[in-house]
Design a protein around this nucleic acid. Structure first.
Lengths: 360, 360
DNA sequence: CTGTTAGCGCCTTCAC
DNA sequence: GTGAAGGCGCTAACAG
């Protein structure tokens, strides 16, 4: 199988088969103008030598490489992982290859530096096109097809797929209202993301619709992390009149909020209802299982890949913009507001400080 | 920022800076023999044009590309995801770039076809080296450095990192024994994996040590999936004398086992103790939180990356073989065996069929 | 049908 | 210090 320790190239194949490199190249690319006998012989040699053409060389010479790139800001983020799964799936179905690219950014690499990496990949034309998750820039210097998932700016000029955030957030809030809640806290996310703003919109819209007065103190802004969810929820629960429900704009914030509730000695959903957004896999196994808005993240990845590959193949997209519908997933973290809910109208302060003290 | 729609190449930079391409190449690669003034000017032009050298061209010409590859068999697998995180982290710390490669395998692509992809990547010298997770082949036809994580065969000739599976499984089983369990079921995994066999070894070793007779009917072989864990546990629980505890050789099997227990109307850990292996993130949030052996998967990825990069840089490894220690993580899925545990000595059949019927 | 000839963008001698 | 020339592995015109 493996005997040589040197790269074996198209030349080696040509020599072994007694033909020229171009002939080998032809059979490699499935050109039809090759004599069957020659073709067969070359195939045999290729198989025997275990030769595979170099992506680097190939992509330098030809337009099409058959691989698409995925650029993700943060591999620790379940959202990205879900996207990755969906893209992976699509790439498989469509007979492409995937190269997932990350500049190792976990703690905020500078945007400029990340963009540098993006361009590097694109510029290299290593890939036929690229999917960018929550891009930090609205404008890439490249001619290669790009599709964005959950872009940060409405002005992005390339095709994008994004969830129906406004409608989803509205539905989530309405669900809480239907459960009898009137004081509903909101934990938002990174303000640079379009989706975060849309979810806040949806929340406010639902409240207005229900005739509930807007209370700015019920609106917290975090960064979509568990920690920030915890911190935001803590502030909410310390309010003179604490909310009976919290809508966290992503699942991780919701986890943080539930954590905070437990620290405060509040039970979920008994004393506090919490609804999330995303429906990441952990939501189903969390304790309590999280009621949330599914935005079908993996499917977003799948759709984005389809769009990209269509563009790569020169097909005009019927729409530059795909909106993924959302769906309420009812699990165990929300309940109807009880008549005499403890804490209703009083801060959870007492429980909290006691609980905190115990943790020391 | 982005104005041109054409790839801008080193030539463009050279022209704009009024120097030759070789000079640009020199400053690009930090050669010292360039006049400071020239260097500065070139840098400025590079920045202004937003130029980045093409990975494809670079990797074709020079030995070092500064990127390492990661080949994973299956993105749906939490194990792989964890490895990915660890590798990503290390790559960041060591100032390399990462290209994660997957042949889109979810449903078993043939091994041959996957290997084809592996070789393609390696052969292309796009990367300086590659990390392979649970490789399906013990022998790659390439000279590029490789490090394997959790290899399938002891005979693999390249450096590897693997958990102390035997010792870990022993500790897990001993823990169950210490809890008073005597009938301990085992749910194993893919037999092609070295790790799976080692875990079975550890289990049997611990039993022998404790003077517990070996009962082949207590040993089930699955494939590390939730479904197979469920199926295996079902068989175990249907035994004339069902086990009071189950050691599942990975966390997903353990989840499946817990599922099966619930379907049978058995509570965990009340009626049945279940311990896993891996400590994937879901283990902590599962209900009940899973007691398991931590094998520090992400750290395995980190270590593998360090080993690989050391090899890439020509440093001789002190050892070709890194064994990751394991550690017991006690959570809520195991309990002491109760005196009159219901079902002890009797199959769970009655409950089962009833429960199954209800699900229809 | 097949071989020959140009490069793709870049790095590396080797001159000047 | 800097430029010119050659070639990495491959594909895409051209010739035969």
């Amino acid at each position: 199988m493996s005997r040589s320790h040197k790269h074996i190239t198209i030349q080696d194949v040509a020599r072994a088969a007694g033909v020229s490199v171009s002939t080998v190249s032809r059979v490699l690319n499935g050109k039809t103008d090759v004599a069957p006998s020659t073709c067969e012989r070359v195939q045999a040699v290729i198989a025997e030598l275990g030769y595979t053409s170099s992506l680097a060389a190939r992509s330098m010479r030809s337009r099409r490489t058959g691989v698409i790139g995925l650029i993700m800001p943060n591999l620790e983020d379940p959202f990205c992982i879900e996207v990755l799964k969906g893209v992976n799936h699509a790439v498989f179905d469509l007979h492409y290859d995937l190269i997932a690219y990350t500049s190792g950014a976990m703690n905020g690499h500078s945007k400029a530096s990340r963009d540098q990496h993006y361009v590097s990949l694109l510029n290299g034309s290593l890939t036929d096109g690229v999917i960018v998750v929550t891009p930090s820039t609205a404008d890439f210097a490249t001619s290669a097809p790009i599709v964005a998932i959950d872009p940060n700016s409405a002005s992005a000029r390339y095709p994008k797929v994004i969830a129906a955030n406004q409608a989803g957030a509205r539905k989530a809030t309405e669900y809480l209202i239907r459960l009898g809640h009137r004081r509903i806290g909101f934990i938002g996310g990174r303000e640079d993301l379009q989706s975060a703003r849309q979810r806040l919109d949806g929340y406010e819209h639902a409240l207005r619709q229900a005739g509930i007065a807007r209370d700015p103190s019920l609106i917290e802004t975090g960064d979509y992390s568990v920690e920030s969810g915890h911190a935001c929820a803590r502030r909410l629960l310390l309010l003179p009149r604490r909310p009976t429900a919290i809508f966290a704009a992503n699942d991780q914030s919701a986890f943080g909020a539930i954590e905070a509730a437990h620290v405060a000695g509040l039970s979920v959903p008994g004393d506090l209802s919490v609804i999330g957004f995303d429906n990441i896999p952990e939501a189903a196994t969390y304790k309590p299982a999280l009621t949330t808005m599914d935005q079908f993240i993996a499917r977003m990845g799948y759709v984005a890949t389809e769009m990209l590959i269509r563009r790569v193949q020169g097909v005009r997209l019927e729409s530059e913009w795909y909106e993924m519908a959302t769906q309420l997933v009812v699990r165990d973290s929300c309940g109807a507001v009880a008549e005499g809910t403890p804490g209703m109208g009083a801060p959870a302060l007492a429980d909290w400080t006691q609980a905190e003290a115990e943790r020391r």
